[in-house]
Amino acid sequence: MPEKPRRTPAQALWDAVRKTPEKAPTPGSMVRDLFGETRRGTPNTRAAAAQLGVSARTVQRWIKQGMPKKSEAADGLAQQHRTWLGSVAGRRARLSTRRESRLRNKGTQMVFYGTVRISSDQRKRGTTVTVGPERMGLILDASLAGDDTTALSQLEGAFGDAFGGSVQLPEIDQLDTFG
């Protein structure tokens, strides 16, 4: 069985902030995310078709029957969607306003398991750390702006506050939030 690809610390942080499990995107959701909706609320297949160089009927077929395995246009749509997911607009769309408001106003508790370096001691640890609303706001601002380096440094700062010193998180195996 092939090994699952390891998530980067930035991906683990973003998943913990979102808290909602990421589902595999459907062709309809990809078209809706990238090209918007028509007045009737359906995915804008006409705009998608014009961008991808196929007919609107082909895009409609993808939405109804699924994407073909070997198609340059379908691969292009999937690639554009992966790029969009990591963009500022994609991150903003995937974080609910209710969740964001809750994190900014009340903070959260983060459950961490992974490698932690405190001073010269580096080992696997599991711990729960309370992240206050001010620090959580800074983490959210950086994550939503696509600045993963700053978001991770703010997370390390929150752990440093809890441990009373400087902390580095070179490897995150699991990161979850309460609330």
Score class of each variant (00 low, 15 high):
residue 94 R to H: 05
residue 172 I to C: 10
residue 29 S to R: 15
residue 103 L to E: 12
residue 105 N to K: 07
residue 23 K to Q: 13
residue 27 P to Y: 05
residue 4 K to G: 01
residue 41 G to F: 00
residue 78 A to W: 03
residue 100 E to W: 14
residue 53 G to L: 00
residue 131 V to S: 14
residue 158 A to S: 09
residue 14 W to Q: 05
residue 93 A to I: 08
residue 174 Q to W: 12
residue 149 T to K: 13
residue 24 A to K: 03
residue 116 V to Q: 13
residue 63 I to E: 11
residue 139 I to A: 01
residue 33 D to I: 04
residue 52 L to T: 04
residue 129 V to G: 09
residue 106 K to Y: 12
residue 101 S to A: 13
residue 2 P to F: 12
residue 80 Q to T: 01
residue 25 P to F: 01
residue 82 R to H: 06
residue 64 K to Q: 10
residue 178 F to A: 14
residue 79 Q to C: 02
residue 153 S to W: 11
residue 179 G to R: 05
residue 41 G to T: 06
residue 167 V to T: 08
residue 28 G to R: 02
residue 2 P to R: 15
residue 89 A to R: 14
residue 70 K to N: 09
residue 44 N to D: 14
residue 120 S to K: 10
residue 178 F to E: 06
residue 104 R to C: 07
residue 68 P to Q: 04
residue 102 R to D: 09
residue 64 K to F: 08
residue 38 T to D: 08
residue 76 G to Q: 10
residue 160 G to M: 10
residue 162 A to S: 12
residue 45 T to H: 05
residue 100 E to V: 04
residue 152 L to I: 14
residue 31 V to T: 03
residue 100 E to D: 09
residue 131 V to M: 13
residue 7 R to S: 15
residue 125 R to K: 02
residue 46 R to C: 08
residue 6 R to L: 15
residue 66 G to V: 06
residue 134 E to D: 06
residue 115 T to H: 13
residue 59 V to P: 05
residue 51 Q to P: 00
residue 107 G to I: 00
residue 152 L to R: 05
residue 124 K to H: 09
residue 13 L to Q: 13
residue 55 S to C: 10
residue 47 A to V: 05
residue 68 P to S: 04
residue 75 D to A: 03
residue 56 A to G: 08
residue 141 D to E: 12
residue 137 G to N: 04
residue 102 R to A: 02
residue 62 W to R: 02
residue 63 I to K: 03
residue 179 G to Y: 05
residue 166 S to F: 07
residue 85 L to A: 08
residue 173 D to T: 07
residue 3 E to F: 14
residue 134 E to H: 06
residue 26 T to R: 11
residue 111 V to F: 14
residue 78 A to V: 02
residue 13 L to T: 14
residue 78 A to S: 09
residue 143 S to P: 12
residue 94 R to S: 01
